[in-house]
Nucleic acid binder design. Structure first.
Lengths: 164, 164
DNA sequence: AATATTCGACAGGTAACCTTACTTTATCAG
DNA sequence: CTGATAAAGTAAGGTTACCTGTCGAATATT
């Protein structure tokens, strides 16, 4: 007969971060859709976030966005089919292809980047530059603190036992 | 021939929030696994976050966590199969069942809640109570600002055109 | 009593990833 | 130069965490 689990009496930081993150992400997607680019899908984020204007290899973009080469390849092929991207052979390496925005894709990317700037301004108006900077610093550091290798940062001493 | 898209010259807030959120989430899961509860899956979060000690109906938990009744039902059945939860008939409504932690499940939940508290303390030590409070406030408000109905908060005037 | 609603479950679908395995091309060690 | 190794892209198939649609049983509403 175990005691009832004792919950924290505050809203967990993880809950706050995830809810804000989800709100921001769906706002980005909604914005693209409202702008008429209804074909933009969540998986395209990994492309928009890592494809520089001059183009890039899919494998490099995969590394930068932290997904597999295969997943990136799928997203890229999808977006090629939608007319957002094009792939041209890399003259310096015949295995490789350079992924680039089409003119249409550039317009979509621009709408997204503009919205990022608009949200940034909205937040600065709401909270002031200082509090916003604090939040940015905390979020960036949280990531560093918790990304401390496979063992994680917060130590542990528990004997779990089993269900039986 | 469109101009190259102009990227923001700062790290987008959405990127910061999502990376921090992902780090926090995977830290929670890793912690449970390191504690020996290797069967805990990401989808169980919706349960741990909404199941009070005295038990609850799955439908209520679904509403609280913002997923469908069906998805919550699936997570609950999964966790019943793992010995984490049990379902007992609701004496006040013969359609319904009350979902409760087993003793084993209570131990898992406690480990998770303790870790939330430990992370909170880690963050307070790192940043101080004030900056942490600022961050919490900003994150909570971001969610409110962006959850402003189906039209979203940031206005828009674009003529998208098409790929051709 | 008739109708509408709610509860949990079942069936089936989808999106965004993943792993494994392959072909083609490039590079490097001897 | 040759053979091993590795890297780029792709194909095939699996997993996870959701979704919609629908159902029977039980409960509420009128």
């Amino acid at each position: 007969m175990s005691r009832d689990p004792v919950r924290p009496d505050f809203e967990p930081f993880i809950a706050l971060a995830e809810k804000a993150g989800r709100a921001l992400r769906s706002d980005m997607l909604d914005h693209a859709h409202r702008a008429g680019f209804t074909e933009v899908a969540p998986s395209h984020n990994a492309v928009f976030g890592t494809l520089p204007p001059e183009g890039s290899r899919a494998a490099d973009m995969a590394i930068r966005s932290g997904i597999t080469r295969q997943s990136m390849g799928e997203a890229v092929r999808d977006m090629v089919g939608l007319g957002i991207l094009e792939m041209v052979p890399d003259p310096t390496d015949r295995r490789a292809k350079i992924v680039r925005y089409t003119d249409y894709g550039k317009r979509i990317a621009q709408v997204g980047f503009d919205h990022i700037v608009a949200v940034e301004e909205l937040l600065r108006e709401e909270f002031g530059a200082e509090d916003l900077a604090t939040t940015r610093r905390v979020l960036a550091r949280v990531r560093e603190l918790l990304a401390a290798g496979p063992e994680g940062p917060v130590p542990l001493a528990v004997s779990p036992g089993g269900p039986d």
